[in-house]
Design a protein around this nucleic acid. Sequence first.
DNA 1: CAGGATCCAATCGGATACTG
DNA 2: CAGTATCCGATTGGATCCTG
Lengths: 129, 129
Amino acid sequence: MEVSTAAPAHAAPLPVALADGVFPAGCPSRTVLDHITSKWGVLILLALSEGEQRWSELRRRAEGISEKMLAQTLKTLERDGLVSRKAQAVIPPRVDYSLTDRGYELSGLLVPLVAWAFDNADDIVSGQR
Amino acid sequence: MEVSTAAPAHAAPLPVALADGVFPAGCPSRTVLDHITSKWGVLILLALSEGEQRWSELRRRAEGISEKMLAQTLKTLERDGLVSRKAQAVIPPRVDYSLTDRGYELSGLLVPLVAWAFDNADDIVSGQR
DNA sequence: CAGGATCCAATCGGATACTG
DNA sequence: CAGTATCCGATTGGATCCTG
């Protein structure tokens, strides 16, 4: 074997509600968690944490996303009350997306996580094979 | 339209490295992010944040997970150096899983996120239709 | 108990074409 | 510009059976 990191003896207590059995399958929190941790959901929320943006801008920033997935992701996040959509009836059309207060609160938790992934990525990948 | 929450005028600056274009497709950080935000990855990391646990225990706690997914998820997390596996050559076999230091660091960011999802879930779902 | 192997259904998700 | 609609291949993931 190689450089297998030894496990620490720590064991942090979880926030009260999560303490036992993680949380039940099929319960709303699972669904919400899936939405906000989805591949593109994270990236969209992250991009929007920098402020209001248009469809085309989001498409560029969430590099690699298809129109289908962008539409679907935005719709889900909007239904969840995390993203707000403002369309203007002009030609050409203009639609701006931004975070709601709730979405902004969430992004405060998401940003550090993404930053961590970014900072640790090279290190993690280099240990593969 | 209904109770569409108005968007706040806030715009938080992102940690330096993420500032523009989110981060490129195909780069390691995307992969790592996918691992740690995967449906079951989150739940396993969360469960392990409470301390070392056995296969069967993890199966129960990550309610709804199949053996296949448990094995696959654990293997991925182990390869990423987030989870440590310790097998004892006894009969019946006993295998304990725990977080590495790196994994523990990560769980510190993950727990608040999951807690948030848990706390906001009912509120979010009730606004659907 | 802790998995590995296989089969197959369901979903995901990209490419393309079209519209207001 | 900002989407919607459709097709269809690729991937996911569960159920089941098997093993050390």
